[in-house]
């Protein structure tokens, strides 16, 4: 047998008190009534049913809560990139769509950042996938820790990350991009890849008017390619 924790008293306990008081009065006032025995039986039956009903409701609520918890957990799993723990493309789309509809509603601009690990293919090819995974995880953690709590960070695919920065201006976008580039610059690989350091190229775009999402992401992506062409390890903003 397990021990049971006490739980909140049922509201039915108050009704029980009322029932007891009524019964006492009936017994006092109708002492000789032959129906008293039946009334007592019925009252007992009523109380047991009342208790059972409350217990069923309590258990049912618990089961319901468990199902909701599991649903949330599954939903989170479906929206998360396993390797980095960031949002995956699917999870990110939900945030992007919400932000885009906020923009068309209240005109609040938001920033998009496409971030690519420099020379990732070379890291993967010459040092192996384990080191590639290390680079992805390290960059993901570094970037996420530099973002604000209300920014959304995703692994968009391969070695590319997409960040959503609500309530941004061009200036804040530039500042954050600079901060991210500096945070990753020079991170050294573990001993098995001596001399290898990481850097990223960042492309930013400030979305100020409603447009197809794909188009806004493309603009941030174009800016990222510009940063690559300008020598990598830096950022560029789309006009």
């Amino acid at each position: 047998m397990t021990e049971h924790k006490p739980h909140e008293p049922d509201p039915s306990r108050f009704e029980e008190k009322e029932l007891e008081q009524r019964l006492e009065r009936v017994f006092r006032e109708h002492e000789d009534n032959p129906l008293l025995e039946e009334i007592e039986w019925l009252a007992g039956k009523y109380l047991r049913l009342e208790r059972k009903l409350h217990k069923i409701t309590r258990i049912s609520d618990k089961v319901q809560a468990q199902v909701m918890e599991l649903n949330t957990r599954l939903g989170n799993l479906a929206a998360t990139d396993q390797l980095t723990g960031l949002l995956n493309r699917r999870g990110m789309y939900e945030h992007l769509e919400a932000e885009m509809s906020r923009l068309s509603r209240d005109g609040a601009p938001f920033g998009l950042m496409v971030i690519d690990i420099d020379y990732f293919k070379r890291i993967n090819d010459s040092h192996g996938h384990a080191l590639g995974d290390w680079a992805l995880q390290t960059v993901a953690q570094t970037l996420q820790s530099r973002c604000r709590s209300y920014d959304s960070c995703s692994r968009w695919g391969g070695e590319e990350f997409l960040f959503l920065l609500p309530g941004s201006s061009r200036d804040t976008l530039a500042q954050i991009a600079q901060k991210l580039v500096e945070a990753v610059r020079g991170i050294a690989a573990p001993a098995e890849a001596p001399g290898l350091t990481l850097s990223i190229s960042v492309g930013g775009y400030l979305c100020q008017a409603a447009e197809p999402l794909q188009q806004s992401i493309q603009k941030a992506d174009d800016a990222m390619y510009q940063a690559k062409q300008e020598g990598r390890d830096g950022y560029a903003l789309h006009e």
Partner: peptide, 22 residues
């Protein structure tokens, strides 16, 4: 994987006098 199911079981066990093994 559903540790909260324990609470449900305990709730069932309450008020019963027979052995209820969880």
């Amino acid at each position: 994987n559903n540790p909260r199911a324990l609470e449900t079981a305990e709730e069932f066990a309450e008020d019963l006098s027979l052995p209820f093994l969880i």
